[in-house]
Nucleic acid binder design. Structure first.
Length: 354
DNA sequence: TCTGGGGTCCTGTTCCGC
DNA sequence: TCTGGCGGAACAGGACCC
């Protein structure tokens, strides 16, 4: 049972796919895959019916279709997802004062001031279902990490409440990659050291981890394995960079064509920045070559800008200087180092979540 | 089996001024 | 005049997340 429970993590189950099923009830019960349609598209979300065939997020759509030939492919409609997200988060904010929204389908909730936090979360889940038809999973724990892993543990419609010690025991035999922050690369490095479970990672002498992963990352891995994390929420997050990028259906070698595309991307990015009245001093390009190597080049300019002529001018210079030696599969542009428009209290809000 | 798009953070390197 | 150490800023790459 949950002793101290200051944080809940709420996660809408198979969010994009579930929104599509709300709009198109005739698809219910069928395997549905939300994904683009190009030859290089990847799966954004799969319904639970599709997941039974082994289809998962970030999988190439071509492979998903081989695994599940009868799946219904639906093109993503982000306006609809944003609208559904707003409806869900409005209910969340009505239930709890302090909320940190993460992406469209997740939020951390501060439960400290609630008298009966678990009852309140049960009520919230049922209110969200009644208002939107969407299911969600809830994890409750003493910090963000326990809450997050708990919300994932029994999806869909999970409701899991754990102390830190209970989380350590329950997940001790699970692989380290269960915990957010330990991705495939770190997991395979750990495996090479003979560490294949969270329990083993938690018990590894910290010196061993420091020697292999460095003075920061090593101890951080162990803290995660022990489910030690912050309980502080960051209700207002301000983006520190904005970007626009595109992957081509077929690799492009023609320098003139690449420059046209880059200018176009810079124009689209600046439209967004102008709308937000944000200007940045750092312009970067991203180039992914046919062999999937990815290169970035950046330049800081004297004056903050969101002028498409300036941004595309710098981006084109960077591209000409780099002069890709192979065909290009992805091109992107990014603006960062925004001028300070926020107040000191906003800046405080940028403190790291974990 | 052939890998999206939009982000964040961390680390190592290089450059520059003192 | 040359060299070296040091710290900060900028840059590049990588890992990770939704």
């Amino acid at each position: 049972m949950c002793g101290v429970a200051p944080i809940a993590h709420l996660d809408v189950d198979a969010f994009y796919a579930s929104v599509e099923l709300q709009r198109r009830p005739e698809l219910r019960g069928l395997p549905v895959i939300v994904s683009g349609s190009g030859p290089r598209a990847v799966v954004t979300t799969a319904s639970y019916e599709a997941r039974r065939f082994g289809v998962g997020s970030a999988m190439p759509t071509a492979r998903a279709r081989r695994l599940c030939p009868d799946a219904v492919l639906v093109a993503p409609d982000f306006d609809a997802y944003r609208q559904a997200s707003r409806a869900v988060m409005a209910l969340v904010r009505r239930a709890v004062e302090r909320v940190e929204v993460v992406g469209l389908d997740e939020a951390y909730l501060d439960l400290v001031d609630l008298v009966a936090p678990r009852a309140a979360m049960r009520r919230l889940v049922s209110d969200i279902h009644a208002a939107t038809g969407l299911d969600c999973s809830i994890g409750i724990g003493p910090n963000r990490l326990v809450a997050k892993v708990a919300s994932d543990a029994e999806k869909p419609r999970g409701f899991v409440c754990l102390t830190r010690e209970e989380a350590c025991t329950r997940f001790a035999r699970h692989p380290p990659g269960l915990v957010p922050g330990i991705g495939p690369k770190t997991a395979s490095r750990l495996e090479a050291m003979g560490i294949t479970t969270l329990g083993a990672l938690a018990a590894t002498p910290v010196d061993t981890l420091v020697a292999r992963f460095g003075a920061n990352h090593g101890p951080d891995l162990q803290r995660r394995a022990r489910f030690e994390a912050s309980a502080i929420l960051t209700p207002v997050r301000i983006a520190v960079s904005e970007s626009r990028e595109t992957t081509f259906d077929v690799d492009i070698s023609d320098a003139v064509r690449l420059e046209e595309i880059l200018s176009d991307l810079a124009g689209q990015l600046c439209q967004r920045l102008v709308r937000q009245e944000r200007r940045g001093r750092n312009v970067a390009i991203k180039v992914r070559l046919s062999d999937f190597t990815t290169v970035t080049r950046a330049r800081t300019i004297a004056e903050p800008t969101n002028d498409p002529r300036v941004v595309s001018g710098v981006a084109l210079e960077l591209l000409r200087e780099y002069a890709p030696a192979r065909p290009v599969r992805l091109l992107g542009v990014r603006v960062a180092a925004f001028e300070q428009a926020q107040t000191d209290s906003d800046a405080d809000q940028l403190a790291l979540p974990l």
